[in-house]
Amino acid sequence: MQLARRPRPQALISLVPMIDVMLILLVFFMVTSSYLNLDMIPALRPTDDAVNSDSSAQQRLMIRLDATGTPHLRAQALSSETLDQLLRRSLALDPQTQLMILPSGAAPTQALISLMDRAASAGVKNMRVLQLEARP
């Protein structure tokens, strides 16, 4: 006699808890992550000491940033074009020209970054930012 086999019931795994967990993870990453595209400009580098050691032989250019963020050379305000020309002329004379920036404490950070940015675009490789400190 041949017995009829009962068909096995299909194993059923509920996917609903997995979807719940995935949705929670998704919301978590969407809320907690920041999506700003950030870059960086080095302010101090391990090689800075080496660069400074032979700085005596370099031509120096001192640019002052006033409280409004306008760059000045020898008390004369510089427009963006004048600044570019000045930097390129100095670099043509001496590719190792050192740019020294003396910013006012009231100047906005953006002004300093923009000046450093413009100098880097012109090809300046050696920059120093100076600070004047009150004598105690």
Partner: peptide
């Protein structure tokens, strides 16, 4: 220093 990339950043 942290910055954001921008094509139209200017001095002054």
């Amino acid at each position: 220093l942290v910055v954001t990339p921008e094509a139209s950043a200017g001095v002054g």
